[in-house]
């Protein structure tokens, strides 16, 4: 009972701390008019390169494998139910609407979220964050803002890449086991894909792009000693993944229910 109570108290205090952090981020936007974009440009470019460009091969290879698996399963099982004409719909449903954004977010969290948390935590221990504060630099804005911008842009691009590679790479991979005429495949996919899907992808990119760096930075600012860095980096990854699953379910419920 005491353990349970302590756990609840810990969660409440964690939520309180996160709330304080969010408030401090909002307050930091007061100084956005004093922020010169050139000072955050390098951080934004480096973050975009790391989160977006460098993650492309991993995202593309996973997209091919997922796309291929979905198409193989669909072509093998749909005829049994007489719904083989709905393969395109299934791809859009599974890959474009759900797996694309979700897997992309998980890749970004594990690659970039962990790196952001570790980088900030190390900078904090080396007193680099304090030195920024002492230069009159708004650290919340200087550190978090460019990473949010880079993440939104990178995640949106990666989801689009995931979808395209998932569709066509999956199609090519599936050719090793089943044959579907390309024009048929293209037609069903194009018919199933709507403008709404693109909007929802954009919405998810923005929400994930804000949440991933925000939570990662929060855990990056957290450690008070070197030995706490791995603990907080691990927390950053696990909790962001969990939150993204919840958010993904909520978005799907709101838009498609």
């Amino acid at each position: 009972m005491i353990l349970f109570k302590n756990r609840i108290l810990k969660i409440v205090s964690g939520v309180k701390n996160f709330y304080t952090y969010i408030v401090s981020i909002i307050i930091s936007f007061k100084s956005i008019k004093h922020l010169r974009f050139r000072s955050i440009l390098t951080t934004a470019i480096n973050q975009t390169k790391f989160t977006g460009i460098d993650a492309m091969p991993l995202v593309a290879s996973i997209a091919i494998l997922i796309g291929g698996t979905v198409i193989i399963q669909a072509t093998q099982n749909f005829p049994k139910f007489g719904i083989e004409g709905f393969i395109g719909n299934l791809l859009v449903l599974i890959i474009a609407r759900e797996l694309g954004p979700l897997i992309t977010a998980i890749i970004v969290i594990t690659r970039s979220g962990s790196a952001i948390a570790a980088e900030i935590a190390t900078q904090k221990q080396h007193k680099e964050i304090m030195s920024l504060e002492l230069m009159g630099i708004d650290t919340k804005l200087y550190i978090v803002f460019p990473r949010i911008l880079a993440s939104i842009f990178s995640i949106f691009s990666l989801i689009i890449i995931f979808d395209i590679v998932g569709f066509f790479g999956g199609y090519l991979l599936s050719m090793t086991t089943v044959y579907i005429p390309l024009d048929n495949f293209m037609m069903t996919v194009m018919e199933a894909f709507s403008f709404e899907d693109l909007i929802i992808t954009l919405v998810k990119s923005i929400i994930y792009g804000i949440l991933i760096p925000l939570i990662s930075c929060y855990y990056g600012f957290m450690p008070n000693a070197y030995f706490e860095i791995p603990i907080d980096v691990s927390r950053a990854v696990i909790r962001t993944v969990w939150i993204i699953f919840v958010i993904n379910a909520l978005i799907s419920a709101i838009f498609y229910f």
Binding site: Q123, H126, K127, E128, M130, L132, L134, G136
Partner: peptide
């Protein structure tokens, strides 16, 4: 407006 030279210098790594 202040110049602050920290103990460990705090250079951005």
């Amino acid at each position: 407006e202040l110049g602050y030279l920290q103990r460990d210098y705090g250079l951005i790594s």
